[in-house]
Structures are given as C-alpha cells and as structure tokens.
Write a protein that binds this DNA or RNA. Structure first.
Lengths: 227, 227
DNA sequence: CGAACTATTAACTATCCAGTGAGTTAACTC
DNA sequence: GAGTTAACTCACTGGATAGTTAATAGTTCG
C-alpha cells in the first residue's frame, strides 16, 4: 500500500486560543457522563450526546476512558467515591444507642433523597448484574464504615439491655437501605399504581419518622420467636 | 422409518407448512420480548434479536405492536396482569391478624423471589420514570386488592387492640415491598459491596423471618412518639 | 532553543439497527 | 369459486452510533 499524498486537507484554524487542562477536561467529561448515564442508562446514553454537552470533543472521551464501558465504570467509581466522602463526615457515637439508630436512619433517608442520580446509577448497574461495579478495585472498602458504625451502636444497645441480641449490623443496614432506596428508586411506578407520591413533603415526613419507629421497635422486640 | 416426504410439495414452496395462528404468534413474540427486555432493558434490547428468538419474523413484531416502545408496553402490561392473576389466589382473611400479616409478608417475599424478571422490568420502567406504565389503561386497579387485604387485617388487629392505630395499609405495603424488592433488585451491587448474598438459602430464611418480625413489632409498638 | 511528549481538534468509517415497502398466501364470506 | 381480508414473508434503507485515523498545537525538559 503506497500511502500516496493524502488528500486530507489541513484543518483550518478556528479556535486560536487553546489552553490545556487535562484534569479539568477529565472532570468535565465525568460530570456530564454521570448525569447522562444516570438519566438514560448504559445502553441508552449516547456518546455523541455526552460529548456535545462537554466543552471538549468526542475523541477525548476515548482518549481518557477507552470506550463507552470504561467511561461508565469511571462514572460508577467516581459516584461511589463521592458518596463515601460525604458519609465519612457522619458521627453518631456521642448519641445514646436509640438516638443513634434513629439518626443513622434519618441521615440515610436524607442522603438518598439528596442523591437520586446515585440511586439511579445503582439501579442501572443492578440491571447489568453489577458486573461493572465488581470490576472496580477496592470498592467493597467503601461501605465498611457504615457497617462498623452500626456495629458499635448495636453493641452499646445490647450492653444496656435495650436491643435484642440476635440482630446483625447488616440486618439493620438492609432494613434501612431497602426502605430508603425503594422510596426513591420506585417512586414512579409506585406513584402510578397507588396514586401516592412517596416524595411529597407531607409523605416524606411521615415515612422518615416511620422508618425510625420501624427499626427501633424491631430492635426493642424481645425475641425472634414472638408467636 | 423416514418416509420420503421431501418430494411431496412443489419446489417453489419455500415454507411447505404454514398455519396461521395470530394468537400464538402474538404470545410467542410477547414471551420472547419479556425475557429480552427484562434482560437488557428497553434501550438495550434488540428487535432483531427478539425476532430471531421467535418462530416468526421481525416484520410481525411491527405488525402486532407498532414499534419497539409499543412492544415494550405490551410486555409491561402483560407482566402486571399475570402478577395480578397470581395474587388474586391469596386468601388470609381466615387467619388471625398477626398470622395474616406474617403470611402477607412471606407470600410477598416468596413471590418476588419467584419472579425476578418482573422485578427487573419494574426497575427498568423506573429508570424510564414510569412513563410507559402510566400509559397503560386501568393499571392502578391491579394493585387495589393488595391494599384492601392489608386494610382488613389492620382493622381486625386494631379492634383486638393488637396493632397501633396510626398505621395505614399503604405504610405496611411500603415496608414489605421495599424489603422484598430490594433483596432481589439490588442483590448484585449489595453482594459486591458487603460480600453477602441476599439470596443464599440460609440468608433467605433469615431475612424471611426477619421481615415478619419487623412488621409485627412495628405494628405492636404502642405509639409513634416512643422517645 | 528544539526534541519529545501530551493534549486536543477535525474528519472519517464501518456497523448496527429500528422501521418499511411491497408483495404472497391462508382462511373466511357470500 | 371469486372476492376480500387478515396473517405472513422477504428484501431493503437510511440514519444513528461507537469507535478511529491522523494531523496539530501546547508543555516539558534537556
């Protein structure tokens, strides 16, 4: 193949000013891709559309993230990392066990409400059977602190004879998470089917209190064999 | 004995036997499309692939369902209808209120486990903001019986002084649903993050009992202002 | 400075994929 | 058994879309 004189014309200079800033470019792409993937899903999102919404070009997405899936994984990893940072701020060890449980429940509740995009990404990732999350190095460590916090609270509560002793931190976590995730993730179909808005202010308040009541009444109940 | 059937028809006939059966064709498409949409999502599923897995051709999908979204909606409507039929079988009115609550919880638990594809479709529909479900005529009526059943149980429990009186049937439904849906819908990311399989047999048994305990201890708790 | 490297731009391509045009045959009607 | 309609087949299309090729310009560092 004799690479003859390429007929490709030289690109005409349109943008005279061009500053380099790899970090900003990367963050720009990641930010746009996050909302786009959260909005449309992995297969629903369009690379061209993501690129169009950034200050850079499509080619840069591939330059930095390899391919569509690579970009999606970066978005996922980034989202979990941001969540971790935020959660690291929480401290409930100074509260008595019952107040601490209620605080954790309410913080989780508020947190999920404040990050619907994150909930959407999690739902999307689960429809893909979590394969991309599993591929992210050290992702499990992200969630340790949450379980450890619950573990400390439960231990204190048991010592004081307030809580039943056959409940694990993971049990409590599942109970709280399921409630909070469901409220955000399934609000659309739920709203249609039951004509009841899980996120309407008055309902929100009700559910927030209810969650605390639920978890505490379960922890206080004497034994698992209650009938 | 293989009879020489090969020479029985005119050579120009490409499809020697072709029986018409619109109902079967339609059901065939719907069946394949259901698993395909549940598996890959609305944007992830491929019309060509769905068609390939049916006994008919792509053109027929369009003949019967108009377009991809029309097929998806038919799948959704059909899935909800089947679920309704199954749930209509349940009768817990002969049980005492506490046993009835536990029965509803466990039936829901088992039901979700038995229909992961349905849970997936619901999750997918929620990532699409429930627009397609909302477009299905009379879909809300589907869920009435579930709430009515809970309403009857709660009324009986209140009369006997067993349950607190500020809990609505929808509250209980949310509590049960969120737990059961979460366990199936989020099992992948949860499994990765906490190294704990929500669907493993021993964990399943534990969670199933726990859910009943949670709902009952909440209903038995004296009042909402418990601190 | 200038060579080497990194970031960036623009144009291009191959394939995928939802949707169609147009005709054919089975079954039903009278 | 001719006419009509519903069910069905086959081949095709054009636009969308992930990913690439290759040239260019800012940055770094000897």
């Amino acid at each position: 193949m004799a690479p003859a004189e390429t007929a490709r014309k030289a690109p005409t200079r349109t943008t005279p000013k061009r500053t380099r800033n790899p970090e900003r470019t990367r963050e720009d792409i990641l930010r746009v891709a996050t909302t786009e993937f959260a909005d449309k899903g992995l297969s629903g999102a369009r690379i061209d559309e993501i690129a169009a919404k950034t200050a850079t070009t499509k080619r840069m997405l591939y330059y930095y993230f390899g391919d569509k899936e690579g970009l999606y994984r970066a978005v996922l990893a980034n989202a979990y990392q941001e969540i971790r940072h935020e959660e690291a701020q929480v401290d409930v060890d100074h509260l008595d066990p019952e107040a601490a449980i209620r605080a954790v429940a309410e913080i989780t509740f508020d947190h999920h409400e404040a990050h619907p995009d994150f909930i959407r990404l999690v739902a999307i990732e689960n429809t893909h059977r979590g394969e991309n999350l599993a591929a992210i190095e050290g992702i499990a460590e992200t969630q340790r602190p949450a379980v450890e916090t619950l573990d400390r609270i439960l231990a204190r509560g048991r010592e004081l004879g307030l809580f039943r002793d056959d409940v694990t931190p993971l049990d409590v976590h599942i109970l709280i998470s399921s409630f909070c995730v469901f409220r955000i993730a399934n609000r659309y179909t739920f709203g249609t089917l039951f004509d009841w808005d899980l996120t309407a202010p008055e309902n929100r308040t009700h559910l927030r209190t209810m969650l605390g009541d639920v978890v505490l009444s379960y922890l206080r109940s004497n034994t698992g064999h209650d009938d």
